[in-house]
């Protein structure tokens, strides 16, 4: 039986942390894409589309992420699809983050005064022209800080992928703990690595918020 030195533990955790980062990036990209689509539906003003997105957000914000993971994981295999923990985690996190991002972005778009819509309409701009040239450039600025802030939630959310067997930072932590029986040290290191990933994002979000507030 091999003996794990502190360096071995840290090295293995760092290797696993790569997958936390990759999964976070995929979830963020996926969540942003779906979220953008949903935001467009939400601000379209069509009753059916608005109701659908409301329900979607309510469902994903009102249920545990863990349950969403399980449902995607077991639900897809029920439909006869061979799913890896990898794919299930990426999909569940995408759906989860899209709900939150939609909620954030809708708020940003609605923070642009109604008068600007009306003024643009009077100038004869179409819906898409208004969005493209008037609303989005302003809303984007408001959206940056809370979006960066939410990315912290995504990174932390990836920790749950360990439960369905995806080997990322947390799973590597439990595995190393089983091998070394030094939970204090191992989970301390795991927590520290998550902190190193998330804290810069938190600080950036706060800095951006302050900076963009001054500009306005």
């Amino acid at each position: 039986m091999s003996v794990f030195s502190d360096w071995d533990i840290l090295r293995n955790l760092l290797l696993a942390a790569r997958w936390t980062v990759v999964l976070s990036l995929i979830a963020f990209a996926g969540g942003a894409t779906v979220g953008l689509l949903l935001t467009m539906m939400q601000v379209s003003g069509r009753t059916l589309l608005v109701r659908f997105t409301r329900l979607y957000i309510e469902l994903f914000q009102g249920t545990p992420l863990l349950m969403q993971l399980f449902l995607v994981f077991f639900g897809l295999s029920l439909m006869g699809l061979e799913v890896s923990a990898w794919f299930a985690a990426a999909l569940a996190l995408t759906l989860f983050s899209s709900a939150y991002l939609t909620e954030i972005w809708r708020g940003c778009i609605e923070s642009i005064p109604r008068g600007q819509w009306e003024a643009s309409r009077c100038l004869g701009l179409s819906y898409f022209e208004i969005m493209r040239h008037i609303i989005l450039p302003q809303a984007l600025k408001v959206a940056i800080a809370p979006t960066v802030g939410f990315s912290v939630q995504i990174v932390k959310g990836t920790a749950l992928a360990s439960i369905i067997g995806f080997v990322e930072l947390t799973k590597a932590g439990t595995m190393l703990n089983n091998a070394t029986f030094e939970p204090f040290k191992v989970f301390g290191m795991v927590a520290l690595l998550y902190f190193l990933l998330c804290y810069p994002l938190s600080v950036a979000s706060r800095k951006l918020e302050r900076k963009l507030n001054v500009a306005r």
């Binding site: 920790a159 703990n177 989970f187 927590a191 804290y199």
Partner: peptide, 23 residues
């Protein structure tokens, strides 16, 4: 506040449940 807000809940849980008994 910063420590808790920037680490996943499950890791905090494992730290408390598995880690604290060792001290």
């Amino acid at each position: 506040v910063e420590l808790i807000r920037n680490t996943p809940f499950i890791v905090q849980l494992f730290f408390i449940f598995f880690g604290l008994p060792t001290i």
